[in-house]
């Protein structure tokens, strides 16, 4: 069985005062190793909620979420943290680099948390990844000295430095212009192909979507379809969704 993420009948409810908002209403989903999967859907459809559940930073109200064969509901806080550290990499919409650390240190951070490698091995690993994202010359730079695209590349390197089984990216291109966004997706795709790392990313953007092996289309907290990138793009265009040049920060 090559399933890395297995979600069954998941419901996620948020309580807002007296009313209960159902962000996910019975979602089931299997993600296979090596997939380059996109989650699409209109704003408020539950993309971020779903990624948070997969990323073990949030828990489902009902239903089962299994990541790397583990039922996340049965793990303690510490075990969830370890699971995130060792099997999941994160790429954030707003990059989320540690401002006081330089590029090298930001990428090295998860390795230090892992405490598995000696300093030389860490160094090699970090430099290797920086080279792959094309930033080995910027190792000593602080995040504030980099462009948005460069920052996100650092974030990609950081997400991959621990060799995770799964990388999650919630709208990784939303804060970038489309050309840079495409480069990031290309980079992710390249790493996916080279290392076989599973990627799940959400996006509004059909140009981004089209790189995916498959697209999960969400609406109103439900999975509408699991389809090919081509069909998904076509569907998106038919709805007249925002073109590729949609400005950064499309979320409400």
């Amino acid at each position: 069985m090559n399933s890395i993420v297995s979600i069954r009948d998941v419901v996620k409810e948020y309580e807002l005062g007296t009313t209960v908002v159902q962000a996910l209403r019975g979602v089931s989903l299997e993600v296979m190793k090596g997939e380059f999967l996109s989650i699409a859907g209109p704003s408020g459809s539950g993309k971020t909620t779903l990624l948070n559940l997969i990323g073990c930073v949030d828990t489902a109200t009902r239903g089962v979420v299994e990541v790397a064969g583990k039922d996340t509901a049965k793990l303690t806080e510490r075990e969830l943290t370890d699971l995130r550290l060792n099997t999941i990499g994160f790429i954030f919409q707003s990059f989320n680099l540690v401002a006081v650390l330089n590029v090298f240190q930001n990428v090295e951070f998860p390795l230090l948390l892992q405490r598995k490698l000696g300093s030389k091995e860490r160094r090699d690993r970090v430099m290797n990844l920086l080279e792959q994202v094309g930033l080995h010359t910027h190792a000593k730079h602080r995040p504030s000295e980099l462009s948005g695209g460069q920052r996100q590349r650092v974030a990609v390197a950081r997400a991959l430095v621990t060799d995770p089984l799964l990388v999650l990216a919630d709208e990784p291109t939303a804060n970038l212009d489309s050309a840079t966004g495409n480069q990031i997706i290309d980079l992710m795709k390249e790493l996916n192909q080279k290392k076989g790392t599973t990627f799940i990313f959400s996006t509004h953007d059909h140009k981004v979507m089209q790189h995916a092996n498959a697209v999960i289309r969400l609406a109103d907290g439900k999975v509408l379809a699991r389809e090919s990138a081509k069909d998904a793009v076509a569907h998106a265009l038919s709805l007249g969704e925002a073109p590729a040049e949609a400005p950064a920060g499309a979320r409400v």
Binding site: V57, L113, Q114, T162
Partner: peptide, 16 residues
Amino acid sequence: TQTIGTMRAIGAQRSL
């Protein structure tokens, strides 16, 4: 809080 949240997300324990 965002930096701390990020650290937590990418695998830092509370003790750290």
